[in-house]
Write a protein that binds this DNA or RNA. Structure first.
Lengths: 217, 217
DNA sequence: CGTATTAGATAGCTACGCTATCCATAAGTC
DNA sequence: GACTTATGGATAGCGTAGCTATCTAATACG
């Protein structure tokens, strides 16, 4: 497959593909002569993955770069797969040097949450720091949201069960792909479904009107 | 409170506050003379809300602007609250003119999902379109993720129950604030908790090692 | 009265994610 | 083999987002 076809297949403009090649997001094609190359189905798939992470997952190019680098390096152990995918996606959490009252309160709340649920997670991991930051933000803005955090954690735990069960009987290579997609696109899927479900619950509680008139103009 | 103090209280630089004022994100202060103004605690809170939506929620300035406009307009009915918050946050979904096989398959899958769960949601609403887009993307990239979508939908539905139950006994004004924060920050909270829970489940399944040595370098 | 702030206007800046142009070589076409 | 088209690679530029900096005239404060 040559450049034009790769572009057509993937829906990504040629100039953009060249840009991704320069940035190392897309591996170079197989050389057929000093300055010609041939691309494969793997390139199409890689392009689709890039676009999915950018458009649907909402990642930055830099994050996509890191995720792909992790995918390509094959020195991952079973247990690290999630960590690697997550750490490249997780945004900076609570500053560890932040010793303010609210920061400590948030950290404590998260510590207790993890302990209460018996979660086996190092407290100094980036994901925990990120969670602490979210909790701190919510605590000072709309603390009611934290009232049922334990119930939420139970449900989320069961979602995580589903996530992990997906890996059953898969090769390590497949697992990497599933975890990456599951981490990035999984967030989008959960958010999108939650919104739909909220509309349903809200309609049941406050009354459903199928016509547009009731919608905000 | 004058500008300098507002800046100190909120942690937002003066230049940035002025920028937000220009953009209409922050309402003008109360005039004390033709070119002086005084700010209140409400301004501090508003600033914190803006920063939370930008930094934690990951919204764009334009989205924040729309959310705030909706918050400020008080012509919302009970049932519309979710819709308004969501529609300003929900990114463009599947193009309705897209008649490709994959797009139709995704739409059908979503339609069935909604029907199976008895959700009361207009199929042409933006949130459903957004969900269809996510489903379409996952379907062509990592379709295994869709295998347990019904189980996920059940759990998400129960999360939505929690979301809606938060509004019990709250004034309409409070409800608006809760829904806005719950929509934007709630996504961040769920994602962060899910990552932590995934680490736990993964550790249980594949073995936990508390030391850093097992982590990706 | 003098120094420090302020509101408001305008201009500039950095990062991101492309997009466009150029050129020399190679491929496809007759 | 001549000729048109496509390609790889390099370099430059562009549009948007989200601030940041500077300036000015008016006000506040001690």
């Amino acid at each position: 497959m040559r450049m034009a076809e790769l572009s057509r297949e993937s829906g990504v403009p040629v100039a953009t593909i060249k840009f991704y090649l320069r940035e190392g997001l897309l591996p170079p094609g197989e050389r057929t002569s000093p300055n010609q190359a041939r691309y494969s189905q793997a390139h199409v798939r890689r392009l689709r993955l890039i676009r999915a992470m950018l458009d649907v997952g909402g990642l930055s190019l830099a994050q996509v770069t890191r995720v792909l680098a992790a995918v390509d390096s094959d020195e991952l152990g079973q247990h690290d797969i999630f960590g690697v995918a997550q750490e490249t996606v997780t945004q900076p959490g609570l500053d560890p040097d932040d010793d303010s009252e609210s920061a400590n309160a948030a950290r404590e709340r998260v510590r207790k949450l993890i302990a209460d649920h018996g979660w086996l997670v190092p407290l100094d991991s980036p994901v925990v720091g990120a969670l602490a930051k979210v909790v701190a933000t919510i605590a000072e803005l709309e603390p009611v949201l934290l009232e049922q955090i334990d119930d939420r954690a139970d449900l989320i735990g069961r979602i995580a069960d589903l996530d992990v069960s997906l890996l059953d009987g898969k090769s390590l290579e497949q697992q990497v792909e599933i975890v990456v997609a599951g981490t990035v696109l999984g967030d989008a899927l959960m958010s999108a479904m939650r919104r739909v479900a909220q509309i349903d619950r809200s309609a049941r509680r406050f009354g459903y009107s199928g016509d547009k008139a009731s919608k905000h103009r």
